[in-house]
């Protein structure tokens, strides 16, 4: 889900083209973008069950971002392999 959305932003919207994925920091950037997507996914899920409004509070969102970033970094086994593979595919597609 997160990676599909990331692919959508990368390929369809050409959104991340200015992130210079040729640089050594490409992996960090794509992982952080994935964590950001997860933040808004949860935010939008919560908006279905409560009137959370369109605004994401910075401090809460920042905590959520760090939480998701940690989860992505700690992926294991097949999930990690699949995640890394698709990030690599995205990077190659942008080169």
């Amino acid at each position: 889900m997160v990676l599909n959305l990331l692919e959508y932003l990368v390929k369809e919207r050409d959104y991340l083209s200015s992130l210079s994925l040729n640089e050594s920091a490409w992996e960090v950037r794509l992982r952080n973008a994935s964590a950001l997507i997860a933040v808004f996914l949860e935010h939008n899920l919560r908006s279905f069950i409560q009137d959370s409004g369109p605004v994401v509070q910075r401090s809460a969102a920042c905590d959520k971002f760090e939480e998701f970033k940690t989860q992505i970094l700690n992926l294991e086994g097949a999930a990690k392999i699949q995640f890394d593979t698709r990030l690599g595919d995205m990077r190659r597609a942008l080169q």
Binding site: M1, N4, L5, Y8, L9, Y15, L36, L41, H43, V56
Partner: peptide, 10 residues
Amino acid sequence: DFNRATKAAT
């Protein structure tokens, strides 16, 4: 941008 993209997808 991220909010709009995830909203429809959710």
